[in-house]
Design a protein around this nucleic acid. Structure first.
Lengths: 102, 102
DNA sequence: TTGACATGCAACCTTTAGGTTGCTCATGCT
DNA sequence: AGCATGAGCAACCTAAAGGTTGCATGTCAA
């Protein structure tokens, strides 16, 4: 469950956004938009793969990475219980439940 | 926007869950359920406060921390664009769109 | 006012994260 | 075959994360 730490880095989030917008990409392609070395990028990609957020396969010389957005469901599920509460607040309903438990 | 790194630590996520289940808590109270020192916990709480996930105020001697679940909306909003895609896949619709762009 | 209790502040230690450089390997075009 | 290209591997550096111990401070109750 270190999907959360996988998401903690801005570069990795950027990678995910790129894959989401542009579809499957090679390391070289992803590197074009990033001010870091290829090796640093590779490390990020490996962490994303470990977290199951990204899948990769070789197409000849190139290693093509594609998104596995399903993994983000883990995060969604974790957040859900909190969401119930903020919904109430945003709708101003908490005024009526200030002295209740649930 | 380092709310993501705030969420990357299991201890901090545990703290948020505790606050969500039990309501506002002092440092002492939160510490009871954690195998770390009070000072370590305080550092975690400070990071949560910086990330706006938690708010604190003194009640006499005690510093009471309460949840600010609204902050999690940031995460929700970031995930949303991905969610669109995984919904499609989960419903098996991707079979029909394998050679499309959108 | 004295003492217990909840917290703050600071120094320190160890591990990991993110990044770099340098070299090797495999693929594929010519 | 030969060479350019995309990627892997390993060593290394620096800064930050997570934790600890030790001491100081403010609040409340007796």
């Amino acid at each position: 469950m270190d999907i959360f730490s996988a998401l903690s880095d801005p570069t990795r989030r950027h990678i995910l956004e790129q894959l989401n917008r542009l579809g499957p990409q090679s390391i070289k392609q992803l590197n074009a938009g990033l001010p870091i070395t290829r090796q640093a990028l590779t490390k990020h990609l490996n962490r994303l793969i470990k977290a199951k957020l990204v899948m990769a396969e070789f197409s000849g010389k190139e290693k093509v990475h594609k998104l596995n957005p399903n993994a983000l469901l883990t995060v969604e599920r974790w957040i859900a219980p909190f969401a119930k509460q903020w919904d109430k607040r945003l709708q101003g309903l908490q005024i009526h439940m200030e002295n209740k438990d649930e």
